[in-house]
Simulated scan of single mutants.
Amino acid sequence: MPHTAAETQAEDGGSGSKPQRIVKLGKSPDDSDKKSATKRLKDIDICVPIAYGTIAFYLGRKASESQSHKWTVYVRGATNEDIGVVVKHVVFQLHPSFNNPTRIVDSPPFELSECGWGEFEIGISLVFHSDVCDKQLDLFHHLKLYPEDESGPQSTKKPVVVESYNEIVFPDPSQCFFARVQNHPAVLVPRLPAGFSLPAPVPVDQMNEKKRGDTKDHPLSQWFLNFSEADELLKLAAARQQV
């Protein structure tokens, strides 16, 4: 697997991000909600901001040629909150040269780590809980191991980080979905009209038995990029001032 260099990166060559995107997902018109008479909230959107990417560490000159880097691919909440309340499991599709290239991670945090030497495109499929959406979201991320500036020796302490930001929008959510996530920190929900009452939230199967998927205390959290609106506004203001 020859390595390539095809990602948007920051000037320091160590981290980068792709443009922000909004993905809108809805239930199929012939979904089972009609059979179960599940009520939906019309003209209301639920938004789940996520970040996904890779962090790759060079293992140094003593490492073997075929195991030169250790990397982690992941999907996380944009504010490092647990997204297991919405995502049921994530399927990572690795290069065919890996043993068992199709990896399923069925509990948060949704990530996996491997060692190798080549760069390739990783398929990332998000499968949602049944009351959220019956369509999966397919994403693609290019694993990057080598910084843009290769004039000097690669650092073993500073990784190559590439992340993308998406906002997943679920229009006309079911009442049970809305009730379950309305106070969850990883999910953005609008206010309901005054006097509107929701049914008691039904917990997702086995969610209480699983470890929380917060990534606030993740060992790689210092390398995560910040996608907050406040930071984006500061960047825009600085760009305008420079122009």
Rank of each mutant, 00 (worst) to 15 (best):
S151Y: 06
V202K: 15
E119P: 05
S36I: 11
D131T: 11
L94F: 14
F120V: 11
P153A: 08
E11V: 11
T4A: 12
S113I: 08
I168V: 15
K39F: 01
D214Q: 09
S151W: 07
H184A: 02
A51L: 06
D12Q: 01
F196S: 02
E111P: 00
F227V: 09
I83G: 03
G14C: 11
V85Y: 07
K235P: 01
P190N: 02
Q241F: 14
A194Q: 13
E65M: 05
K144G: 03
A237E: 15
E119C: 15
G14L: 09
C47Y: 00
P49N: 04
D43Y: 08
Q175E: 14
S164A: 15
D205E: 15
A186V: 09
H218F: 04
R191K: 12
S66M: 07
G84I: 07
Q241S: 12
V132Q: 01
H95Y: 08
D214P: 00
V189E: 00
L112E: 09
T4N: 07
H184W: 12
V243P: 00
G26Q: 11
Q182Y: 01
P108E: 11
R240F: 12
V87E: 04
S164M: 05
L139K: 10
I46A: 01
L126R: 04
A37C: 08
E7Y: 04
L225Q: 14
K35C: 10
L59M: 10
L225M: 14
D217E: 13
Q20F: 10
H95N: 13
P49T: 11
H129L: 01
T4R: 09
D43K: 11
C133T: 04
Q136S: 13
G118Y: 10
A63C: 03
A6Q: 10
Q9A: 12
K34C: 04
K34A: 09
F120N: 01
V87N: 04
H129Y: 09
D217C: 02
K135Q: 14
V87R: 02
Q241D: 14
H142A: 12
E65A: 12
L225K: 08
D205I: 07
E148I: 05
V127M: 05
P159C: 09
H184S: 03
P173R: 01
S197D: 06
S36D: 13
L112P: 02
D33V: 10
A238K: 12
F57A: 01
K135C: 06
C47M: 08
K211R: 13
Y52H: 14
P108V: 13
F110R: 00
V132S: 01
K216H: 12
N166W: 08
A200Y: 10
I46L: 10
N80D: 07
D12V: 03
K39D: 00
A194T: 09
I124T: 13
A5S: 11
F177A: 04
N100S: 13
